[in-house]
Design a protein around this nucleic acid. Sequence first.
DNA 1: CTGAAAGCGCTAACAT
DNA 2: ATGTTAGCGCTTTCAG
Lengths: 367, 367
Amino acid sequence: MCPLWLCMSDKPLRRRRAATLADVGREAGVSAMAASAVLNGASTSTRISEETRSRILVAAEKLRYRPNRMARALVDQRMNTLGLVGRLGSEEPNLYFLEVFNGIMRAARARGQNVTVFDVEGWHDARQNFSEFCDGRIDGLILLAPTMNGPASEWLPEHAPAVTIDGNSPIPGVPNLRSDEEGGAFQAVMRLLQLGHRHIIHVGGPVEANGAGLRVQGYERALREAGVVPSSRNVLRGPYTSKGGAAALESWLQANCGESLPHAIFAANDAIALGCLECLSARGIRVPDDVSLIGFDNNLFARALRLSTIAQPLGTLGQQAVDGLLSMIDARLARLPEGQPHETVLPTELIERATAAVVRQHKLTIA
Amino acid sequence: MCPLWLCMSDKPLRRRRAATLADVGREAGVSAMAASAVLNGASTSTRISEETRSRILVAAEKLRYRPNRMARALVDQRMNTLGLVGRLGSEEPNLYFLEVFNGIMRAARARGQNVTVFDVEGWHDARQNFSEFCDGRIDGLILLAPTMNGPASEWLPEHAPAVTIDGNSPIPGVPNLRSDEEGGAFQAVMRLLQLGHRHIIHVGGPVEANGAGLRVQGYERALREAGVVPSSRNVLRGPYTSKGGAAALESWLQANCGESLPHAIFAANDAIALGCLECLSARGIRVPDDVSLIGFDNNLFARALRLSTIAQPLGTLGQQAVDGLLSMIDARLARLPEGQPHETVLPTELIERATAAVVRQHKLTIA
DNA sequence: CTGAAAGCGCTAACAT
DNA sequence: ATGTTAGCGCTTTCAG
């Protein structure tokens, strides 16, 4: 019986260094450059004779040679790795992250890139981390739903190309990708209006969130186009969570006790919609028989609960971010011209499921 | 109006190379080593005078010097980056991945490590990718729910430390972390038995999945301990998805039409449980009034739908994987001794919510 | 066709 | 207290 540390020092347990080009060259009786030319297709015009080539191949196989990417990166200043910065941890698991991430991974793999993830606690504190992120290990950065302000030059290293997805406020020179939130909200409310609803309230997202503001605007535009005057009393704002949605709706209902129940609710995202669903069902109000409900995001819940909602092309957002970032990197471009805010807006889609129906005919007041 | 490519070649748009130690040294009028000693705390015993030190600091600030991690990694053979290999994309968004990932990211950040994610299509095809993953860019690998067979030496580079989470079959020398699936299943079924249920069916996972087999075993052990003889006719196996669960249950119900409805269902995971829920509600069978249901995983859905379930400590699994892997890396250890399968089993927890209740008193047959 | 030399940015050891 | 030299593993000139 040997103590653990002794076992650990046994031969097969210790880490052996990986074979290098020099090792392969030595084994094959040629120089390291010849091996490099054969094994890593170095752009040397020099051709290697068939005979040496196969000797090198055999030696490499025998030594299980694998190129060292670090060394190569040092030479050609390219890691073929993209950095993704986002807030992973939150109260509720971040489904939004998961879907965008999926699109990013798919596109990255298709283009031979790896992705390393930087999880930040909060965006403001993250400012000082950026130069650390851009220390050569990645070729460019995708910022996922950042809420940074101030010019990029203050916190983004000058040599680091970057794109944002759902950036909260425009960052000069950094292209942004987002979906058409105003248009999506418009679609949703338009549909409710078509179904005969007039008294539509909006359980919105946080006031700090730019996108939440756009959804409010879309809501109001649809109302106005249908000849309904929007009232700020019908717009509630709160966090993008189910708890937040439930709380916001509940306190609004309490404040408006005795008045007539709204015909429909447009929720700023699916989490909020879920909260509304819980709040309503706790009060015995049926969806969509008594009130209709449309959410935003088309996340996992929306699909499972058959929630009518607006789909954002989250995967596509991620994929286009990768493509855009790579074209900047390939053009060795750290910033886009600052002329106009360079923004790409992707269309949303109305997904009709089971929570939006024709307006109720019966009278209902808030209990 | 200049064409785009011309704009692109403008001064502020081109990527400037980041300043190096040599640049800083030149600016400060000292050697690069002095700069290294001051800025990156190189372990040189040499002390720098206060005066040069501040000159260097000033120069670094002016040039916005940032150490290049690639170069340093080349020297000390350490990237401080962990690789995570898993199947991200599947039919349904991978909540399991998300939670483990969260634990991994948290632990990694606490220990100053980065994480790069390698998304594989399928584990079998991934075999040839491993040597590419271990090309120096990461110090060790976490394999998430791999279904590899054969000794690690065949596909894992000899110098690469690795751990698995929920490995399907033991890999000699590679430590595995998992939760107590047999015990969790036992807990769930035991609770159903305590509630008076006798006729309990199990909608299980795929036969290829080792963990699904363990859940069946726990189910059967609980039954036997309560004096109920398990019948293979009460165990259905299918994919770990809601569709799969719904389909499996539905066809079982059709096959057993006219017989008495089971008292309770133990589902092998929450997705399956969700499928069961859908199947039952489509048939007008109420949960838990008519049949009780317990799932497994405690995922987002379970929490939202108030599903009684078994919680796996997914975040902890990820965190412990990071810790274990780092201790192997720090010990410069690529494999653990092959004596006994090195496995860490974490306890599960029964989460009681709204889908498991006392057994029904009324008679019910399958329609 | 192949080898030698230089250098990517950094650090360790050894000079001054 | 500071500079010099060498080398991590690889690639690209440039000579043979």
